[in-house]
Amino acid sequence: MPRTLTDGIQWIQGCIPRPGLTADYVADPPDWYEPDREVHTCQNAYLVTGDRTLLFDTLSPANRDHVLAELDHALGGRDLDYLVVSHPEAPHAGNAFAILDAHPEATLVAPAHGNEHELYHLGDADRVAPGDTIDLGGKRVEFLQPLFLDHAMHIWLRETTTGTFFPVDWLGFPHMAGECLTVVEELDHEVTVDQLLAFHGRVFFWYQYADVAKTNGVVEELADRHAEDIVAPAHGLPITVDADRFIRRMATVVEHVNERGRLDVFG
């Protein structure tokens, strides 16, 4: 079942078990990891509903039946008006064709910058750039410049009436079985730097080449800008209170990757 994240925004999640952790990680586990529970990485899509509806991202083809069923449930018999893909990778655009087949009335929307990616047929999409908006009637989404990205063709999103920020891959982290569709504030533990590193040390390995002071200046800017927002990442659990405190932990993540290089806890 989709979960209502806030007024007019529903969260669709697909989780993937990750049993293959490195021996070093299992031998000296951080506080967030429990050896007797399964580790999950997740993919999230979000349905924004006003007078019109917009789905942000699609989950991967492995979750095709799941996302189609969850989307139909979330729509409750309504049409899908817009399908927005943040960037052309499987967890974000891999079900675009299937969703458009099921909802041919929907307009496909993709980032304006970057090269066309024929695999996901984004050449037929309406193109949006940072600063562009879509008025859904009672809800309004604004497209943002992605400041931390893993693909040249990439867009972030913010729903302006609820103050919900969608940073796509940034702020991702794994969670334990039983924590699916749980917001960060409902966990019985803090999301630690180690937990954030388990994702960022692999996906954002370019931190090792970054200017730490400049990069963490951007982290501080984002913490200030989105302090009051709900933060809804594509590969982590949403944060609904004290977003600025959570975002500031990323400064330590940047420093760790910069010092140690690429980190991958999954074998």
Rank of each mutant, 00 (worst) to 15 (best):
D101T: 13
G236S: 02
P17N: 14
R249K: 15
A177R: 08
A152I: 11
Q10N: 06
T22W: 10
D264R: 14
P167S: 10
R248H: 10
A90F: 13
A251Y: 07
T22D: 11
D28Y: 06
V219K: 01
H92F: 08
L47N: 00
I134F: 04
G94W: 03
E186Y: 06
A125F: 07
H121D: 14
D36I: 12
L122I: 15
A90Y: 07
D28E: 08
H200Q: 05
R249W: 10
F173G: 00
K139M: 02
T161P: 02
S86P: 06
H154V: 04
N258V: 06
P130M: 05
A27F: 08
R245S: 07
T164Y: 06
M176A: 01
C180D: 08
E105I: 06
D135V: 12
Q195C: 11
G236E: 00
G50T: 00
D244I: 11
A62L: 04
D150P: 00
D135N: 12
H121R: 14
G201T: 09
P2D: 08
V141E: 01
L55T: 01
L83E: 06
R262D: 08
A198D: 04
M250P: 03
F148T: 03
D169S: 09
L71W: 03
H175T: 07
L149F: 08
E34Y: 15
T6G: 07
L54F: 01
Q208D: 06
E105A: 12
R158F: 03
P104K: 14
I16H: 11
E38S: 11
A125E: 02
L5V: 13
P35Y: 15
H154N: 10
H66V: 14
D72I: 08
D169T: 12
N95W: 03
V85G: 05
D194E: 12
V219G: 01
D28N: 15
E116M: 11
R225N: 05
F143T: 04
Q13M: 10
S60G: 04
D31P: 07
L75A: 06
D150C: 02
E34M: 13
V128T: 12
M1K: 12
T161D: 08
